[in-house]
Write a protein that binds this DNA or RNA. Structure first.
Lengths: 187, 187
DNA sequence: CAAATGCTTTTACATATGTTAAAAAAGCAT
DNA sequence: ATGCTTTTTTAACATATGTAAAAGCATTTG
């Protein structure tokens, strides 16, 4: 599914809205390891991972922390820095060779201020992000590390073949050692 | 600050937009203990707490869990159920005598589909909610229960005089016993 | 006022998870 | 393939936080 199709699935879009958005989308291939956004840079784009994998990460007390993981057909962007247009203390890198469709945030913001359907698209996307965050809070509060791992596997059965375990552990809010214990079953 | 003023602070609003919103807002006093939304009900309103205090809660494994606390000039609503218009598994009750301004969600949704400024208001409110959720995830992941308690006190210095400790503990994702330990300093 | 109900603290104990370090396994490059 | 780096597992130990139960306070209510 393309970014435009993903947009249209969130909010029905007229021809004119689709054309405005399509004109703002750029598609590009990137190699594994490519840094989409380095630390300290003001992010210009919101990205959509047509195919591939990436993560958002940062350093906390000198340790690498994975804040977010995205696989095929998911969005990836340093949202707080994006909407405030301030230097990001989080970085984005690709974990596989990937095909991305990206939209310049400033353009999207302008379109929102001009076009009703696009503003509502933006609204619904933000609402989905909000719901996702709520779910993540609930998972962190009430599920054990083992249960969060199971949940992740349920959603992305092949993720362990694609993403290094240390990143999964960090994303799940636990440690490599704990996750290894969980996988061994010897608890 | 009124709800309309809170709206205008998020997104500049023309006279027409303000009038449309104002017509949809109802203001009312409620006593402490009043249930704004019982379990299983489809929420009709998004609420703004002009003055007072309330909480969103639910039962998890038979235990009362506080999902959200709101004090003066904060929004309170069962957002997931509100936007999906499905029966809420969370309830809302007031913890003090309170003055509320409420807006019917169906009306707000209609206005969003018709009015560009209001759609962008909705978009920005959702974005703020998203950011708040991100912060909460980060706090849960990296702060100890003691640090989360300190943070809460920093934001709302008088909250311990207004909200029972058991609700604070639950909201912070810890237990009454732990929070009591934290407060005693004997760790 | 007294009784009752609800709230907070304390104690004792259990356990999931973190930390550090080292070994084993897997992946990658020359 | 051979070695070099990265990733994963295992081990031993420390600790924050949860659970359960009881006692002490405070608030409400008849």
């Amino acid at each position: 599914m393309s970014l435009l199709q993903a947009f249209a699935a969130v909010q029905p879009l007229s021809e004119s809205a689709q054309q405005l958005l399509a004109a703002a989308i750029v598609e590009k291939d990137y190699p594994k390891g490519h840094v989409l956004l380095p630390f300290g840079q003001i992010p210009a784009y919101m990205h959509y991972l047509v195919k591939g994998a990436g993560r958002i990460y940062y350093l906390r007390d000198g340790l690498d922390v994975t804040d977010y993981l995205a696989l095929d057909q998911q969005f990836i962007g340093a949202v707080p820095a994006l909407i405030t247009q301030s230097p990001s203390h989080k970085a984005i890198e690709l974990l596989e060779d990937s095909l991305l469709q990206s939209i310049r945030y400033a353009t999207f913001e302008e379109l929102c201020q001009q076009h009703l359907e696009i503003a509502n698209l933006g609204r619904k996307m933000a609402l989905f992000g909000f719901l996702e965050g709520q779910q993540r809070v609930e998972d962190l509060r009430f599920l054990s590390a083992a249960e969060r791992y199971e949940e992740l596997l349920r959603k992305h059965p092949t993720i362990t073949q694609r993403i290094p375990l240390k990143h999964l552990a960090s994303f799940l809010g636990t440690t490599q050692v704990s996750l290894s214990r969980i996988r061994s079953g010897k608890q």
